[in-house]
Design a protein around this nucleic acid. Structure first.
Lengths: 187, 187
DNA sequence: CCTATCCTACCTAACACTTGGTAGGTTCGA
DNA sequence: TCGAACCTACCAAGTGTTAGGTAGGATAGG
C-alpha cells in the first residue's frame, strides 16, 4: 500500500505527541516504532515542521469526525453535551495522555507557524461544535452560546491537564462533575 | 553576594520555563542570561533535575506568598476571589507566558520525580487557598468548597492555556467573565 | 517478449549542531 | 591557606537533516 507507512508514521507521531508534545517527537524513535529508518520519514514528510502540521491536521479532522458521529448517533443536544467530556477522557484513559493541541498550546512559542495554525483550528472546531449544540439545547441565550462554548472547552482542557498531573482519571470525572454542579455544564 | 548568581539563575530559569517548559531549559542559554558559564551553574545546582525542582519549589513559594499577601490586603473573601484570576493573568501579560506548573503538567511524562512532586504541591497550594476563601465567602456548601476550588483552579489554567494559544489576553478576560456568568466563579 | 528506463520506498552513512554533564584548573576574599 | 565561585576544555549522546545508494515493480520502445 502506498500510504501504509505514512499512516503508521502519523499514528505513531500522534501517540508520542500526546504524551511528550511536539518537542518530544524525534525521527529515530518514530521510525523505530513504525519499523523503518529515520531518513525514510523524509520520503513522506519534508521536515519535522511538516510532520507536526500533518499530525495536528489529522488530529483535528479525526476529532471533527468523531464529534459529527456523536451528533449522528443522537440528535438530542443535551445528550451530546453530556458525552462531550468523554472525548477528552479517552486521552487520559490512553496511558494518561492528553489533548495534542493542549500540549501544543503550552509549546506555542517553539511551534512552527503552520503547526500554530492547526492548534488554533482544533480549538475552533471544538468551539463551533459546542456552540451549535448549546444553541440547539437552548441552555444559554443565543448570543452567549459561543462565549460559553469557549469557556467549556477551556475548562475541560484544564481539567484534563490537572488530572494528568496526578495520573488520576477519577479527578477528571470529579472536575467535570463540579462543572455541572456549578452550572458551567448543564446538569 | 553568596546567593546573587543562584537567585539570578532561578529567576532566569523560571522565566524560560514559563515560556518553553522544563525541556526548554538549557544550561548554556541560562548561563548567558545570568552572565556566567554553563558549567558554573553546577556549582549551585547539581543537575538539571535539581534545578527544575528548585525552580518549581520557588515558584510555589512565591505564589503562596502572593496569595497570602492578597488575603492581608483585603479580608473580604469575595474580593480575593475576584482578584485570584489576576495571578494567572500576569503570566500572560509577561510576553504571553503561562503558569510554570501547567506547562510542567503537560510535560509530566518527561519530568524527574522531584519536579513532579513540586507540580502537584503547586496545585495543592492553590486549591487549599481557594477552598479556604470559598468557605469564608460562603458561596458554596462547606463540603463543596474543595471540589469547587479544584474546578476553579483547573478552569483558570485552561483559560490561560487557550488564551496563550492565541496570544490574546482579552480572550482570557472573556473566559473568566464567562466562568462568572455561568456560576463557576461568583459574579 | 525482452530490455532499458524510471519511480517509489526504503536504506547506510554521515553532517553540523545541541544537549547535560565532568575534570581540572584559576581567582580572590576571609 | 582555604574554600567559594567561577573558569576552560572536553565528552558522549542525541538532534534534524542531507547525500547518495539500492531493490523491485511499473512502463515504454524496439
Amino acid at each position: 500500500m502506498s500510504s501504509s507507512s505514512k499512516e503508521a508514521i502519523l499514528a505513531a507521531a500522534r501517540r508520542t505527541a500526546q504524551a511528550r508534545g511536539y518537542n518530544g517527537l524525534n525521527f529515530r524513535d518514530l521510525a523505530d516504532e513504525v519499523g523503518i529508518k529515520a531518513a525514510s520519514i523524509y520520503h513522506h514528510f519534508p521536515s519535522k515542521a511538516d510532520l507536526g502540521a500533518a499530525v495536528a491536521k489529522r488530529y483535528r479532522e479525526d476529532t471533527a469526525a468523531a464529534l459529527d458521529a456523536m451528533l449522528d448517533e443522537s440528535s438530542d443536544p443535551v445528550r451530546c453535551l453530556r458525552q462531550y467530556p468523554d472525548t477528552f477522557r479517552k486521552a487520559l484513559q490512553n496511558d494518561n495522555r492528553m489533548c495534542l493541541c493542549s500540549f501544543m498550546a503550552a509549546e506555542y512559542d517553539d511551534l512552527p507557524e503552520p503547526v500554530k495554525k492547526e492548534v488554533q483550528a482544533f480549538a475552533d472546531v471544538n468551539v463551533a461544535w459546542l456552540s451549535r449544540i448549546l444553541s440547539a439545547a437552548g441552555v444559554v441565550r443565543a448570543e452567549e452560546s459561543e462565549p460559553r462554548a469557549r469557556a467549556i472547552f477551556a475548562a475541560i482542557a484544564g481539567a484534563q491537564l490537572l488530572a494528568r498531573s496526578r495520573s488520576d482519571i477519577s479527578l477528571y470525572d470529579a472536575l467535570i462533575g463540579s462543572y455541572r454542579a456549578a452550572g458551567l455544564l448543564p446538569a
